[in-house]
Amino acid sequence: MRKNKLGSRIIAFTFLLILAIIWVVPLIWGIVTSFKSEAEFSTIGFKFLPINWVLTNYTELLVNNASTPLFHWFANSMIISVSNTVLVLIVVSLSAFAYDRLQFKGKNALFYFLLATMMFPSVVNIIPLYKIIDLLGWVNTKWAMIVPGAAGVFNIFLVRQFMSNIPISFDEAARMDGASDFTIFRKIILPLTKPVLYVVALFTFTGSWNDFLWPSIVFNDIDKMPITPGLQLLQGMYQSQPTLLMAGAFIAIVPTFILYLFAQKYFLQSMSLSAGVKG
């Protein structure tokens, strides 16, 4: 039996290693290309690694940014994604608490109705949503990306699943001591829900950071754009300078990557408690 285990570990390792190579090559190729000079890239045929490592692509984008508002885009994306994440965390944790712990008329019906709307594809409401954003005077503003994202249902579902694993006796004890619903929520449930909230934060932040179709519709002012549609503009502007584009792509990746490093350790734990999903 021991031997069997060892064998399966070797097979698993080999399999993962092959996949890992496929996964890592584009990344490494992208990173090293962003350190090649344009001249080297386009004149000296194919070489995986740079002959001369240069920082010019990054300095061009970040320092000589008169022509490319990359800094603006980056800052815009930061403000949008952080605000959206905070709003979602507040809204979602409050709702999930109510759907899991509190009793009110029509609770289950309402919750299942919300779940059913998840099936509804978001394409249907893009055109009217644009009109609503326009009526609110939010075209070309960050609000257009911060608020609508909090309408989602998936995260409530995820957090509720997680909360349902917290023993009800915790609340009951507190209630005996005269704690209000809000106190129970804030002092007892919220701290215990932290792991899944990290995951929600990661999902929301990356979702907001990476959203592409929606911002390319609601923004037409180049300075006000977030970075994801900005990168596509960059692609049009610098189509002949792929090394510069690569540098832009990797700058755009940094924040989500850092957040992931923080949230990673909560990942499996939250998923195993939440993902007991029943379709």
Partner: peptide
């Protein structure tokens, strides 16, 4: 089955889903 470097593999495979589609396409176009 908990092979060696499991944590690293997991992180690596998850990594691209953190990227914006426009960044992904820039990399793959090249």
């Amino acid at each position: 089955v908990k092979p060696k470097l499991g944590k690293f593999f997991q992180a690596l495979f998850y990594l691209p889903s953190l990227f914006a589609i426009s960044a992904v396409v820039i990399i793959w176009n090249l």
